[in-house]
Design a protein around this nucleic acid. Structure first.
Length: 849
RNA sequence: GCGAAAGUGGCGGAAUUGGCAGACGCGCUAGACUUAGGAUCUAGUACCGCAAGGUGUGGGGGUUCGAGUCCCCCCUUUCGCACCA
C-alpha cells in the first residue's frame, strides 16, 4: 500500500476484504476443533462506549488467537433490544420504540464494523424481533408445563410520583432512583419462575465451574442463593394446640431462648391473638411496623422495636415458657417469619434483650483446647450470663442444657435436630435466601406473556402453534405505570383457545433477563424456525469456552442463565449442567471527572465519556484496541489516558516501517542457508523470537493480554537492535529477521488485526492470514534455550556480583567460580564463610559470619 | 457493622515453585535532525549520594541462607453484603 502508516486506508481495505470474503462466518460443516468465544450482548442504547470497546477487544483478541491456531471459531453478536430506554424515548419524545431501537442498532453495528471486531454478522440476533421472542414465549410455556412458571400476588415497588413500577435495584433504599420519591409497595398478580427449585444445584454445581470463574462472582452467587443449614423447631403455645415454627442454625443454643419473636406480618399472629386483651395493642403495633416496611427495606442500622404479645410459647427442649414478642427485626420472607431469641448467643437478640430487659441466659461457653480435641465429659465452664457485655456467637461447649451439657456445638447441632425429629417437634432443614424470579413487567417493550384469560376456562396458555404472540406496532405511552398493552384493544381481545369464547390476553411483558438467559444458544442455530435451536448443532459449540462481560452481571444475568441451562437440560435440549466454562469479568473504563483527580466510569451525566468514533478517526481502530488491551490487565480498572493511545500508534507505526524496510530483501530467495553457523546476535534474536512465541501462546488462554503485548514490544525492540542492513544482510540474517517479523506480525494480529493483515501481505503472503494453513508460530524449545546463564552471587543475601557461565555448569563448579570471583572475594575479606548455598543454575548465596 | 480482595517509581503496571525488584509503556530530562512540530531518532530516568556506597515493594514483627511473594499484628483503599436467625 503505502510506505507510511495510514490507519484509515488500511482499516477500510481490510474491513471490506473481511466482509467480501466472509472471513468470520463459520462454515456449516467444519471438522476442525470448535471454539466458542462470547461477549455479553449489548443493549442498543445508540452509541458504543469505551466499556464496549474494551469488552469486544478482549473477546476479539481471543477469537483471532484461536482462529490463527486453526480452530473453527464462533464469535457472534446480537442485541438485547427489549427494555426500558426505548419505552422512555416513546414516552418522552413520542417516537416508536421499534424504530428507535432499529436505528440504534444500525448505528452501533456501523461502529462495531469500524472497530473491525471479527463477528459472524450472518448470525446477528435481536431480542425484539418476533423470530427471537417467539422462543422466549415457547420456553415460558415449557416452564408452565413443568410447574416452573406460576402466578401469584406479590408486592412491587411503586413510585407514586412517576406512577411506575420499579425493580428492586431501581428502588434501593426505598428511594426512586430517578426522582427521589419514597417508594411504595403495591400488590400485583405476577408470573414467577421457580428458580428456587434449582437453588441447591445452583450452589452445588459451582464446583464444576470453580476453575474458570472469578472467585468473587462465585461468592456473590453463593450469597445470593443464601443456602443455610439448620433446623425447624416447633414451639408450643400455652393453653392452645397451636404451634409456632422457627428456623434456627443454632439449635445448640435453644436452652438460652428467652423469647420467641414474630415478624409483624406473621400469618399466625391474628389467630394467636384471638381473645387476648392485648389484641388491639399488638395489631396496632404490627400495622405500624408493616407500614414502615412498606416504604423502607429492612435496615440493620434501624433501632429494634418490639412488643410483648402476652402469649407464652413452650420451649420443646426445656419445657420452659417464654414470652412471644412481635418485632421489626424479624423478616417475614426468610425462614418461617419467626425466630427463637437467644440473647446470649446472637448479636441481634442481644441488642433486643438489652433494650427490653429480657433475660440473657448463657448456654454455650468457649471450649477449651482439650474439649475440642476429645469428647467432653460434662458442662463445667462458668455461667457468666449476668455479666455478659456482648453475645458469645462462636461455637463452644454447651452448659445449662440438661443432658446436652458438655457437648460441643458441632455435635449438639446434629444430635438435637435428630432428637427434635424423633419427638415430632422439628426437623433438620435447609433454607435459601433466593426467591422465585418475578418476570411480569407492566411494560410495552418486551416479549408478551403468552397467556389468555377466559371467563369460563380460566388461565389458558397460548397454544404453541399460535406463537409468537406478536407485540402490536405501537401503543399509547402515557407513562402512568399501567401496562400500555392493556390499552390496545386488538391485542387484548382474543378468543379462548379452549372454548373459542371471548377472552383477554395477559397484558404484561417478560423481564428482559429472560431474553438474555439463553441467547447464546440461539447464535449456534439462529434461523431455526422449528425450535429455539437444534441440540445437535448446539452440542458442538457449547458449553461456551470463554464468556466476557462486566461484573455488574455477576448475579442476576449469570445466575438466571445458569438456571435456564439446567431447565434446558431437563428438557433434553442440552446435556451439561453449566453453560459457561470460563468467565472473565473485565474492569471498568474510567476517566477523570472534569479537572479533578476523581476517576469514575465514563458516563454522559458526568461528562467524562470518550467517543470511540473520535478515537478511531484520530488514531485508528488498531491503535485504540491495542491501547485498551495494553494499558491494564483485563480485570483491572482502566484509566483513560490519551497519551497512552499515542504510544500505541507509535508502536504500530514503527513495526509497519520496519516491515517496509525489509520487504524487498525478504522477497528475494534466501539461497543456501547454514543456520548452524550464524552470528551471536542472530542467535540471540532467534532465541528471543522463540521465547516470545512461547510466552504469548501460554499467556493467551488466561487472557494476560497486557503482558503478551509487552513481550511483542520486547521482541520488536530486539529486532530493531539487530539492525542488520537489508542491503548487506546475509541469507542467514534475512532468515532470522523474517522469522522474527513474521512471528511478530501474526502474534500482533489479535490486538491490531487490520495493520497485521496489511503487513502480512507486505511480507509476501498474498492469501491473507486466514487464507491458508493456520499461521500461529510454534516455539522451538531448543532455540529458546539460553546459551549462557547470568548467575547472581549474594553474600548474606546481598547482591555482590554476577557470573556468566555455561548452562551445563555443575553446582560444584558454580560454587568454585563464585568464590573465585574478585568482587565476591572483596566482599568476603576478613570474614568466615559458614555455608555456600547453591541454587542450581540460578543463584549462589555465600553465608558469612 | 460483617466479609473478601488489594497496597510495588511521577503514572499504568512486570516479577512460574520464596531466588537479580521495577520488564513493557506513558510521562519527564538532555541531545540530534528539522519547512521550529504536540513529528522522528539517540541517551538517561526507583530513592539518597559528586562518588564509593547505602536505602527500597503501606507500617511493625516473625519464619528462612534468601521474602514483593509465606505467617502474625496494625494502617489504608476498593468491592461485596447489610437485621437471612
Amino acid at each position: 500500500m503505502d510506505e507510511k502508516y495510514f490507519p484509515e486506508q488500511i482499516e477500510n481495505k481490510w474491513q471490506k476484504h473481511w466482509a467480501d470474503s466472509k472471513a468470520f462466518e463459520v462454515p456449516a460443516a467444519d471438522t476442525r476443533d470448535h471454539f466458542y468465544c462470547l461477549e455479553m450482548l449489548p443493549y442498543p442504547s445508540g452509541f458504543l462506549h469505551m466499556g464496549h470497546v474494551r469488552n469486544y477487544s478482549i473477546g476479539d483478541a481471543l477469537a483471532w488467537f484461536r482462529r490463527l491456531q486453526g480452530f473453527s471459531v464462533l464469535h457472534p453478536i446480537g442485541w438485547d433490544s427489549f427494555g426500558q430506554p426505548a419505552e422512555q424515548a416513546a414516552i418522552k419524545r413520542g417516537v416508536n420504540p421499534r424504530d428507535w431501537t432499529e436505528q440504534n442498532i444500525t448505528h452501533m453495528r456501523g461502529q462495531l464494523k469500524r472497530l473491525g471486531i471479527s463477528y459472524d454478522w450472518s448470525r446477528e440476533i435481536a431480542a425484539h424481533r418476533p423470530d427471537y421472542y417467539k422462543w422466549d414465549q415457547w420456553f415460558f410455556l415449557k416452564m408452565m408445563e413443568r410447574d416452573l412458571a406460576y402466578k401469584k400476588t406479590s408486592q412491587v415497588n411503586w413510585c407514586p410520583k412517576e406512577l411506575t413500577v420499579l425493580s428492586n435495584e431501581q428502588s434501593s433504599g426505598g428511594i426512586c432512583w430517578r426522582c427521589g420519591s419514597t417508594v411504595e409497595k403495591r400488590d400485583l398478580e405476577q408470573w414467577f419462575l421457580r428458580i428456587t427449585k434449582y437453588a441447591e444445584e445452583l450452589v452445588a454445581d459451582m464446583d464444576q465451574i470453580e476453575a474458570g470463574w472469578p472467585e468473587k462472582v462465585l461468592k456473590r452467587q453463593r450469597d445470593w442463593v443464601g443456602r443455610s443449614e439448620g433446623a425447624y423447631i416447633d414451639f408450643g403455645i400455652k393453653d392452645s394446640d397451636k404451634k409456632i415454627r422457627v428456623f434456627t442454625t443454632r439449635i445448640d443454643t435453644i436452652y438460652g431462648a428467652t423469647a420467641v419473636v414474630l415478624s409483624a406480618e406473621h400469618p399466625l399472629l391474628a389467630e394467636l391473638l384471638e381473645g387476648s386483651a392485648l389484641k388491639t395493642d399488638v395489631e396496632t403495633f404490627a400495622a405500624k411496623i408493616k407500614s414502615e416496611r412498606a416504604i423502607r427495606e429492612a435496615d440493620a442500622d434501624e433501632e429494634k422495636e418490639g412488643l410483648n404479645t402476652g402469649i407464652l410459647a413452650i420451649n420443646p427442649f426445656s419445657g420452659e415458657s417464654v414470652p412471644v414478642w412481635v418485632a421489626n427485626y424479624v423478616l417475614v420472607e426468610y425462614g418461617t417469619g419467626a425466630v427463637m431469641s437467644v440473647p446470649a448467643h446472637d448479636q441481634r437478640d442481644f441488642e433486643f434483650a438489652q433494650k427490653y430487659s429480657l433475660p440473657i441466659k448463657q448456654v454455650v461457653a468457649p471450649a477449651t483446647h482439650e474439649q475440642t480435641q476429645a469428647e467432653p465429659t460434662g458442662g463445667t465452664a462458668g455461667d457468666q450470663s449476668a455479666s455478659m457485655t456482648q453475645p458469645f456467637t462462636d461455637y463452644g461447649v454447651l452448659i445449662n442444657s440438661d443432658d446436652w451439657g458438655g457437648k460441643l456445638s458441632e455435635v449438639a447441632i446434629s444430635e438435637m435436630a435428630a432428637h427434635a425429629q424423633q419427638n415430632g417437634f422439628g426437623e433438620a432443614a435447609i433454607t435459601y435466601r433466593i426467591r422465585d424470579w418475578g418476570i411480569s413487567r407492566q411494560r410495552f417493550w418486551g416479549a408478551p406473556v403468552p397467556i389468555i384469560y377466559c371467563d369460563s376456562c380460566g388461565t389458558v396458555p397460548v397454544p404453541y402453534e399460535q406463537l409468537p404472540v406478536v407485540l402490536p406496532e405501537t401503543a399509547e405511552f402515557t407513562g402512568t405505570g399501567e401496562s400500555p398493552l392493556a390499552g390496545v384493544a386488538e391485542f387484548v381481545n382474543t378468543t379462548c383457545p379452549k372454548c373459542d369464547g371471548p377472552a383477554k390476553r395477559d397484558t404484561d411483558t417478560m423481564d428482559t433477563f429472560v431474553d438474555s438467559s439463553w441467547y447464546f444458544f440461539r447464535y449456534c442455530d439462529p434461523r431455526n424456525e422449528e425450535m429455539p435451536f437444534d441440540p445437535n448443532i448446539v452440542k458442538d459449540w457449547t458449553p461456551v469456552a470463554q464468556y466476557i462481560g462486566g461484573d455488574s452481571h455477576a448475579v442476576m444475568h449469570l445466575i438466571y442463565t445458569r438456571f435456564w441451562n439446567k431447565f434446558m437440560r431437563d428438557l433434553g435440549l442440552v446435556s451439561f449442567d453449566e453453560p459457561v466454562k470460563r468467565l472473565l469479568t473485565q474492569g471498568m473504563v474510567t476517566n477523570r471527572v472534569g479537572d479533578t483527580e476523581e476517576w469514575k466510569a465514563m458516563s454522559k451525566s458526568l461528562g467524562n465519556g470518550v467517543d470511540p468514533d473520535e478515537m478511531i478517526a484520530a488514531f485508528g481502530a488498531d491503535a485504540t484496541r491495542l491501547f485498551v488491551l495494553f494499558a491494564a490487565p483485563v480485570e483491572n480498572e482502566l484509566r483513560w489516558l490519551e497519551s497512552g493511545i499515542e504510544g500505541a500508534v507509535r508502536f504500530l507505526r514503527r513495526v509497519y516501517t520496519q516491515v517496509w524496510k525489509w520487504q524487498a530483501r525478504l522477497a528475494t530467495p534466501n539461497g543456501e542457508l547454514n543456520l548452524n553457523d550464524i552470528s551471536a546476535e542472530a542467535r540471540a534474536l532467534r532465541r528471543k523470537t522463540h521465547q516470545t512465541i512461547a510466552k504469548v501462546t501460554n499467556d493467551f488462554p488466561g487472557l494476560h493480554l497486557n503482558t503478551s503485548i509487552a513481550a511483542l514490544m520486547e521482541l520488536f525492540n530486539q529486532l530493531t537492535e539487530f539492525n542488520a542492513d537489508p542491503e548487506k544482510a546475509s541469507a542467514e540474517d534475512v532468515f532470522v529477521v523474517r522469522e522474527a517479523l513474521e512471528a511478530l506480525v501474526v502474534m500482533l494480529t489479535p490486538f491490531a488485526p487490520h495493520v497485521s493483515e496489511e503487513m502480512w501481505e507486505t511480507l509476501g503472503h498474498k492469501s491473507g492470514l486466514l487464507g491458508g494453513e493456520a499461521p500461529w508460530p510454534k516455539a522451538d524449545p531448543e532455540l529458546a534455550k539460553r546459551e549462557q546463564l547470568e548467575i547472581p552471587v549474594q553474600v548474606n543475601g546481598k547482591l555482590r556480583s554476577r557470573l556468566i557461565v555455561s548452562p551445563e555448569i555443575s553446582d560444584d563448579e558454580l560454587r568454585e567460580t563464585a568464590l573465585a570471583d574478585e568482587k565476591v572475594k572483596t566482599a568476603l575479606a576478613g570474614k568466615e564463610v559458614v555455608t555456600v548455598k547453591v541454587v542450581p543454575k540460578q543463584l549462589v548465596n555465600v553465608v558469612v559470619k
